[in-house]
Design a protein around this nucleic acid. Sequence first.
DNA 1: GCCGGGTTTATAATCATTCTCATTCAATAA
DNA 2: TTATTGAATGAGAATGATTATAAACCCGGC
Lengths: 147, 147
Amino acid sequence: MRLTHAQFRELAWKHGLAATHQRQVVYEAVIASHGHHSPEQIYATVRLRLPSISLATVYNNLRLFVECGLLREVSPHASTLRVDGNLRPHHHLVCSRCKSVQDIEGDFFDLKRISRQIPAGFDLTQSMVEVFGVCRRCRAKRSSRTN
Amino acid sequence: MRLTHAQFRELAWKHGLAATHQRQVVYEAVIASHGHHSPEQIYATVRLRLPSISLATVYNNLRLFVECGLLREVSPHASTLRVDGNLRPHHHLVCSRCKSVQDIEGDFFDLKRISRQIPAGFDLTQSMVEVFGVCRRCRAKRSSRTN
DNA sequence: GCCGGGTTTATAATCATTCTCATTCAATAA
DNA sequence: TTATTGAATGAGAATGATTATAAACCCGGC
């Protein structure tokens, strides 16, 4: 998807960001191809239009876009492996900001109903559900923010 | 939690693993302290009992334990950032093996009902749900495995 | 057009994780 | 109990993803 520079400038300003050319191209690359992109993939796409862009710029701007709510992060977890010895069926409540994880017990999820909606062949027998939100502590800490 | 060596050996064998001393201590460290542990945290705990253990051994054995189903991996997602330009409310279907992500539309989750069960103060207004399972391709690939 | 502060670039640094290989150990057979 | 052998371990190097640094550059206001 392409935007005029004026359109992008308005979008960026609404979110408190300066509207640079690099940012516009990175943003357009993410929006244009639907899916869930890694920084490397976006970098490859953006380089077709801006061969001299730096990978660091892609990382910086993706982080900014996520922080200001222009994009969402898939699986916002801590950057390190976490392991759980609790094998009983349970689910996780994850804070998108501090990445803390708490167990939730209970049967919120109608897996039968989900099964009817998901692609054929996807196996939910060992399934787990994670619910993302903002924990009490993080909400208190940054309650002044609007996003 | 401590196990006798005989108990651990039986547990390990049931899952197709040799029962080494290091493995027992790593496993006990995970089980003993409830929560969601990083390799570094487990390494620190294990070193109290086995000061000469290598961090690589902790990593190797955690991976093996997860593969054979003795432990679960929290947030089994690709180790690289993924970004999503779709801001409309939707959820993700994630394959625990190949880490692929697909969108699912629909209203499977009764957030009101969840809200009543989660700790006070946890903010679900920007929430997202991810459902983990095994995608068709991965299921076909390793259908001979029992776990 | 010029200035100043934020942005970009290139590269170095960092962090988590995996690999390599020499050494050691667990499990089986004698 | 001991010997054997393939698997597991330990130490450190290597890798891959991400972040930090510092000099050059550009956007937007004057």
